[in-house]
Amino acid sequence: MTDARPLFARATTQAADLIGTVRPEQLSGPTPCTEYDVRTLLSHVVGACTRIAVCGERGDGLHVRMFVDGVPDDGWPRAYEDVRGRVVAAWASDERLATPVRVPWGEVPGREALPLYVMEVVTHTWDLWEGLGRPLSLDTELAEYSLAVAHEALPDGPRTDHPFQPVVPTPEGADVYGELAAWLGRRPLSPV
């Protein structure tokens, strides 16, 4: 199994770069996560990253809320950057990869949990990228890796035990991010 830590670090850097482009007037805009506007998605991205950090630090982050409150409109880049450094450090040791961690889908070695966290960061980066009007180029290798993880971890049929919608048709002309989004039940906000 590939060590997911370098890809995880790259995924968090890509997310940080994208979050750095957010303008306050975009915060109420839609995202492919139909229940989240940009602000709510950012709250979830920072909250989920905090949970992943605590999981890496203590072996269990399930008690951590998946959303954060109180971030000022222009404070999202700083909020994410603060937790990004923490989460990368929390998963840096070889011992963390070998040690079981408690995650929403059970107790598994850290090396089995981290690829799904790469997929989560990459997917929410795409969600935000769509919501912000696709302001930057995205790292194709991260999407390819995440799509392989998604295919392995998630069924193509009903997903009653997963937080993802059923697979939707991949839009014609979609890139690998579009394929990943479709596998996770997401649709782009505008044509490819």
Rank of each mutant, 00 (worst) to 15 (best):
M1D: 12
M1G: 15
T2P: 12
A4H: 07
P6E: 06
P6M: 04
L7D: 13
A15Y: 02
I19T: 09
G20V: 08
T21I: 04
V22R: 07
V22G: 11
P24R: 11
E25N: 08
L27I: 10
S28E: 14
S28T: 15
T34H: 10
E35H: 11
E35K: 12
D37P: 10
V38E: 14
T40V: 14
T40C: 06
L41Y: 12
V45L: 15
T50S: 08
R51G: 11
G56H: 05
G56D: 05
D60E: 07
D60A: 05
D60V: 03
H63W: 02
V64W: 02
M66V: 13
M66C: 03
V68I: 11
V68Q: 07
D69H: 08
G70M: 06
V71M: 06
P72Y: 04
P72R: 11
D74W: 01
W76H: 09
A79M: 12
Y80K: 04
Y80A: 03
E81P: 02
D82A: 15
D82Q: 15
D82K: 13
D82F: 06
V83T: 12
R84A: 15
R84F: 05
R84M: 07
R86M: 08
V88L: 10
A89P: 01
A89N: 04
A90L: 06
A92H: 03
S93D: 04
S93Y: 01
E95R: 14
R96K: 10
A98S: 14
T99H: 06
P100H: 05
P100L: 05
P100N: 10
V101K: 02
V103T: 14
V103L: 03
V103R: 01
W105R: 05
E107A: 11
E107N: 00
V108F: 13
G110M: 06
E112H: 07
E112C: 01
P115Y: 03
L116I: 03
M119E: 13
H124L: 13
T125Y: 08
T125C: 14
T125F: 09
T125L: 10
L128P: 11
L128T: 09
L128V: 09
G131R: 12
L132K: 05
G133D: 11
R134S: 05
R134Y: 00
P135A: 08
L142I: 03
L142Y: 04
E144D: 14
Y145S: 10
Y145Q: 08
L147V: 05
V149K: 07
A150S: 13
A153S: 15
L154M: 14
P155H: 04
P155K: 02
D156H: 02
D156A: 13
T160H: 14
F164I: 09
Q165C: 07
Q165H: 14
P166R: 14
P166G: 09
V167H: 13
P171L: 00
E172Q: 07
G173T: 00
V176D: 00
Y177S: 02
Y177Q: 03
E179K: 09
L180A: 06
A181H: 08
A182G: 04
L184H: 02
G185E: 08
G185P: 09
R186Y: 08
R186V: 07
R187V: 06
L189N: 05
S190E: 13
P191S: 00
P191A: 04
V192I: 00
V192A: 05
